[in-house]
């Protein structure tokens, strides 16, 4: 293979419609979150805000590999998963504003996006907290004889938690239909993987529980989709859980409070050269499946969607303080 051939864009071996749908979702997430950062600066959004910018290929590829009735358990960095799942941008933005029209009625905020119809079970802000929950959802599905899969997203930091190890063991022991999607962005907040783990091969950890493992380039949405699709097919067929490590990178700081002093700016720039949107756009263009004009139209549409979402959130209502005590218990009538 010559160096010229190595430099040529990789082919896009999936249906063009799907590739374009995934491109569209990545652009939607990017534009949505850029606006979130602005709105945070304007103090429209408060609390913690964790941006997914740079990691979009993972959530988009994985969510597109799931059926609409599969279950999703996500982390506090879940705007992308919620948008890719089809939850209205307006409901997500309203949630971040704390408005009643938010997808969690303003009780959750950025870290706790929920949607029962979309089977999105949060938005869990305890690192590793979603793994036992997802294991249990899969247990219920298996006991009820269903074929739905449960997908749980978590960062590589969660791999240090007992919840990860206990869930791996239970899921493998009981052959549960759960896919463990590990978004390895190399830093648990500010602590690099190699500074916190004796074994940095995450697949080796999962494999030690007899869990099937796979690894994918988390900057390549097609690779993410294919790895997730294979994993989901496998668990749906009753072969037991699968662990997929997506190697990715977040361009922004951990949260809006993070001064980002623990990593080299050159490292960030190097990862940006291989950005997920750029990566797929180039490949589709080189195959003649995307024109610059179409890309600009996708981007304009995404920006319009964000404008409408912001307007929806701005016009939303503040819940009456009289209702403060609702939804603590199911029957509690304020």
């Amino acid at each position: 293979m010559t160096s010229h051939e190595t430099a040529a864009p990789k082919p896009v071996p999936i249906e063009t419609g799907l590739a374009l749908a995934m491109l569209r979702d990545m652009v939607r997430i990017r534009r949505f979150e850029e606006r979130c950062a602005d709105l945070y600066g304007q103090q429209k959004i408060r609390g913690f805000l964790h941006l997914y910018i740079g990691e979009e290929a993972v959530g988009v590829g994985a969510v597109h590999a799931l059926a609409t009735d599969d279950s999703i358990v996500a982390t506090y960095r879940e705007h992308g998963h919620a948008l890719a799942r089809g939850i209205a941008a307006g409901a997500i933005m309203a949630e971040m504003y704390g408005k009643l029209e938010g997808c969690s009625r303003g009780r959750g905020g950025s870290m706790h996006l929920f949607d029962a119809k979309a089977r999105l079970y949060g938005g869990n802000a305890i690192v590793g907290g979603g793994l036992p929950l997802a294991t249990g959802l899969a247990l219920a599905e298996k006991m009820q004889g269903g074929r739905r899969a449960t997908a749980v997203f978590f960062g590589e930091g969660a791999v240090a938690e007992g919840a990860f190890h206990e869930s791996m063991n239970l899921a493998a022991l009981w052959k549960l239909p759960v896919v463990f999607f590990c978004e390895n962005n190399l830093y648990a907040m500010g602590t690099a993987l190699a500074r916190s783990e004796s074994q940095t091969d995450l697949c080796a950890k999962a494999a030690s529980y007899d869990v099937t493992t796979a690894r994918a380039d988390g900057m390549d949405v097609v690779a993410c989709y294919e790895a997730a699709r294979d994993a989901v097919n496998r668990v749906r067929d009753g072969a037991g859980p699968v662990f997929v490590e997506f190697q990715t990178y977040r361009y922004r700081a951990h949260s809006m409070f993070d001064p980002d002093l623990y990593r080299d700016k050159a490292e960030i720039e190097a990862w940006k050269k291989n950005g997920p949107i750029h990566n797929l756009t180039n490949r589709l263009k080189s195959e003649g499946k995307l024109t610059e004009q179409t890309f600009l139209a996708i981007d304009a549409e995404a920006q319009r969607e964000v404008d409408l979402a912001v307007a929806f959130a701005e016009e939303g209502t503040w819940e009456s303080v009289d209702d403060l005590a609702r939804d603590v218990h199911t029957q509690a009538a304020p």
Binding site: S71, P132, L133, T135, L137, A140, S167
Partner: peptide, 14 residues
């Protein structure tokens, strides 16, 4: 932690 969490998840799952 694991099996109590799994019980919680199973409750959410019906």
């Amino acid at each position: 932690l694991g099996f109590v969490g799994a019980g919680i998840g199973a409750a959410l799952g019906g």
